[in-house]
Design a protein around this nucleic acid. Structure first.
Lengths: 194, 194
DNA sequence: ACGAGAACTTGTCATTGTCAAGTCGAGGAC
DNA sequence: GTCCTCGACTTGACAATGACAAGTTCTCGT
């Protein structure tokens, strides 16, 4: 199959994403990815030496989608609007891309639980956007003073936990309303003191 | 090997817990558990038909430990003290029992991502304690009014997210201070309005 | 005495991650 | 032009695993 040069790696990640979406993360395997891409069973190991490597590549792709979801165009465009969209976009991304979300944060499939560089870089980039939005809210006097990184870490924890618990079925109700509730309550804790 | 009657199931869960602690969740297998317990490779399937079944049993055990960690004896005993201990206990439990915590919340090893009844019951029992503590704080006028279940869900999301991100290395710093920071900020958002 | 069911064991199968070794073609050195 | 190397795979093999089917053995009620 005439493949554009240097694109097998990309194609393998595409196949992995598609398999995760259609069959779930748990049944992903290096060999399935290879088969879906029409290459030999050992080809993936050439690019990602490990299952861990594949998952890191998949996760990096996932962070791009997550960031896009948090930056989705919204009606208003005050810093507060963007704050709300960050939270909602995060939780809804988890709900809409369950397998991918799990691949990003719960890589149980790989023996080594610690994410590698590519993965970690992508995560930091995404986090940086959250920090920038929080800082903007502080400049507009909508969010109380304090280290924006610490506040952002808390916000990340909250939306991340909500997404995870939602996927595990621990939080009842439709994702949309869970997202709204979480964001609403989170902001109550971030307001400037009255 | 003369085994007390009806105790193999318990012994298998014990073995699984021990293996998770010593080698990590990712390398757990039904067969290893069987070997560690001195029984045939198919014995575990008799009690937990699935890997999923074993993980559910392990998770149920885990919730008992989690609850204990949240109820750890503390100096003061106001409802606020207990609120703090719930949060700290949760985050620290995650940090101290990484494999078990992952087994409880990220059962990627099983094909079916949804927890089963035993697991879910244990989770609800644990959550009920959180709700009771939050409600007590409300009675003492330390936490703002509102549906205690909704507030507790938010609190759970936050500590759960913090634990998960901590394990994935996304939050730097020692677990103890992360726990303190999270609980501190969480409470700021729960205070009664001034 | 007998049948039934619980508590396993033995055997087997397809699938998987990983490693070692090969193949093959393009690009540069001489 | 020939040689050499190196990247991009392929082929082959191995041990481990989850799951299933078919026993076996033991106990208990009748």
């Amino acid at each position: 199959m005439g493949r554009p040069p240097g694109s097998l790696r990309t194609a393998l990640v595409d196949a992995a994403l598609s398999l995760i979406e259609s069959e779930g993360l748990a049944s992903l395997s290096l060999r399935k990815v290879a088969r879906a891409s029409g290459v030999s069973h050992a080809a993936p190991a050439h690019y990602f030496k490990d299952l861990r490597g594949l998952l890191d590549a998949v996760a990096s792709r996932g962070y791009a989608g997550l960031l896009a979801s948090m930056q989705a165009p919204i009606a208003g465009s005050t810093s507060l609007d963007r704050f709300g969209q960050v939270g909602r976009g995060y939780v809804l991304f988890a709900a809409r891309h369950e397998g991918l979300y799990r691949a990003m944060f719960h890589p149980q499939l790989a023996k080594d639980p610690q994410p590698h560089d590519e993965h970690r870089k992508a995560a930091e980039l995404t986090f940086a956007y959250v920090v920038s939005v929080v800082a903007a809210c502080q400049r507009d006097n909508l969010v109380r003073a304090g280290d924006p990184i610490e506040l952002s870490t808390l916000a990340w924890s909250t939306v991340h936990g909500a997404g995870a618990l939602l996927l595990d079925g621990h939080i009842p109700g439709p994702p949309q309303s869970v997202a709204d509730s979480v964001v609403h309550n989170l902001f109550l804790g971030f307001r400037v003191d009255s």
